[in-house]
Every structure is written in structure tokens, then in C-alpha cells.
């Protein structure tokens, strides 16, 4: 298969956008998952709903809301631009859209794994002198690691394939916001585009399957390590 330079640019961009989206949203995702799993507070249901919104809204709507909020003339756009953070029609905007769309999947996986961490172990840690943050970093986080890895990879796969919100928010600019999905779309709009579209489709499938396999492998390794089976 011979890829055009446009293809390579789009593949590299997709990987960068997805990696940045996951890297930036992961700490926030862990924090939100922990809050939803371990704390009761007013507005918890609202937060839960908000987190899940991108999963159920049409992606175009999410993209439009991002445009209204983070666009050049949006609610927060100008303020953030003054701080040097510009999203509109930039790859950073694509990363933001990808991160928002992957967020519910990430939080769900992490929350489930934090739910599964035995609170009695956390109480034991507390009795041994660990303050709340200490308990989190030495017991909760390591034991929830398989779910965190799974959540991150799920979000990564989702980010790689994100299309609707991205194209609505930051358009389809080659080299800046034209990810694999956007380029496939462009190819399907021109005659003779079938071959290139199929090539990128195969790349897309390969990347997604690769991410899935990596997630399984990592989760299994982490689970084995934390249960001690690797030493049995």
C-alpha cells in the first residue's frame, strides 16, 4: 500500500491528538471517577449526567457547544486566548473535542475499578497512619490501575476515531485538524477517492484493534501483578 503524504500527516496528527487528549484528560478523569465512586455531595447526579452527556448527545451538538464555549468569539475562547491557549481551528481544538468525547468512556471504566477496590483495605491503610491522599496514592490508585489503563486506552481509541464533534468545532484543515477520520470523509467526497479511503479505513481498523489488544495485555499484566499471581 502506498500512502500519500496527506495520509501520513493525518495518521501522525490523529495519534498526536489522541495521545494529548488522553494525557490531559486522564488526571481529571481519575479525579471525577474517584469523586463519583467514593464521595457523596450535592450535585453528584448532575456531575454524573454532565460527564455522560457527550456519550448520548449527537456529536454535532457536542461540537457546536464546544464552538460556542471555546471558539474565537465563544464564552471562554477570548479569555483562554489571552493566556495563550487557542482551540479554534487548531489541532489543540481537535484534542479538546477528542478528549471530551472519550471522557465518559474513560470515567466509566475507572469508576468501576475504583468501586471494586475493597474499602476495608483503605480503612486498614488509614489505621496505619496514611492520610486520605496517602491512602489514594498507595492503595486505591494502584489497585484500580487495570481499570485506569483500560479507561485510558478506550478513550484513546475513541479519540482516534472522533469525527462529528471535531469537524464541527475545528473543521477539516489538512495538517492542523484533518485526522484520519476527517481525511476518509474528504476522500469519499471526491471521485477516485475509494482506494485511498479504504487504505485509511484499514489503518483505522488496525490502530483500533491494536489499542484494544494493548489494553487487554496491560490490564492482564497489571491484574496479575496486583493479585500476586505472577509470583505464585
Amino acid at each position: 500500500m502506498d500512502f500519500s503524504s496527506d495520509d501520513w500527516v493525518a495518521i501522525a496528527l490523529s495519534l498526536r491528538v489522541a495521545a494529548v487528549a488522553v494525557a490531559v484528560s486522564l488526571p481529571l478523569g481519575i479525579a471525577v471517577a474517584w469523586l463519583l465512586s467514593r464521595r457523596d455531595f450535592p450535585g453528584k447526579t448532575l456531575l454524573d449526567g454532565l460527564v455522560h452527556l457527550p456519550l448520548i448527545l449527537p456529536p454535532v451538538v457536542t461540537g457546536y457547544l464546544l464552538l460556542v464555549t471555546f471558539g474565537r468569539k465563544g464564552l471562554l475562547g477570548p479569555v483562554l486566548a489571552e493566556m495563550g491557549l487557542v482551540f479554534s481551528f487548531r489541532w489543540t481544538g481537535a484534542a479538546l473535542a477528542a478528549g471530551v468525547m472519550g471522557f465518559p468512556l474513560m470515567v466509566r471504566a475507572i469508576r468501576l475499578s475504583i468501586d471494586a477496590v475493597d474499602r476495608r483495605l483503605e480503612a486498614a491503610a488509614e489505621s496505619l497512619g496514611a492520610p486520605p491522599l496517602g491512602v489514594f496514592f498507595t492503595v486505591t490508585l494502584p489497585l484500580a490501575l487495570p481499570g485506569i489503563v483500560a479507561g485510558a486506552i478506550l478513550a484513546f481509541a475513541k479519540a482516534l476515531g472522533e469525527f462529528g464533534a471535531t469537524i464541527t468545532f475545528v473543521s477539516n484543515i489538512p495538517g492542523e485538524t484533518q485526522t484520519i477520520a476527517a481525511l476518509i470523509y474528504s476522500y469519499t467526497q471526491v471521485p477516485e477517492g475509494d482506494g485511498p479511503a479504504m487504505r485509511l479505513t484499514l489503518v483505522s481498523i488496525a490502530l483500533s484493534l491494536g489499542a484494544l489488544a494493548a489494553s487487554e495485555l496491560l490490564a492482564r499484566r497489571v491484574a496479575a501483578r496486583s493479585s500476586g499471581a505472577a509470583h505464585a
Partner: peptide
């Protein structure tokens, strides 16, 4: 009652 050792 249960040892509650940290499994990791």
C-alpha cells in the same frame, strides 16, 4: 478479622 493485607 480478615488480614486485609495490601495485595499489590
Amino acid at each position: 478479622q480478615e488480614a486485609r493485607l495490601f495485595p499489590h
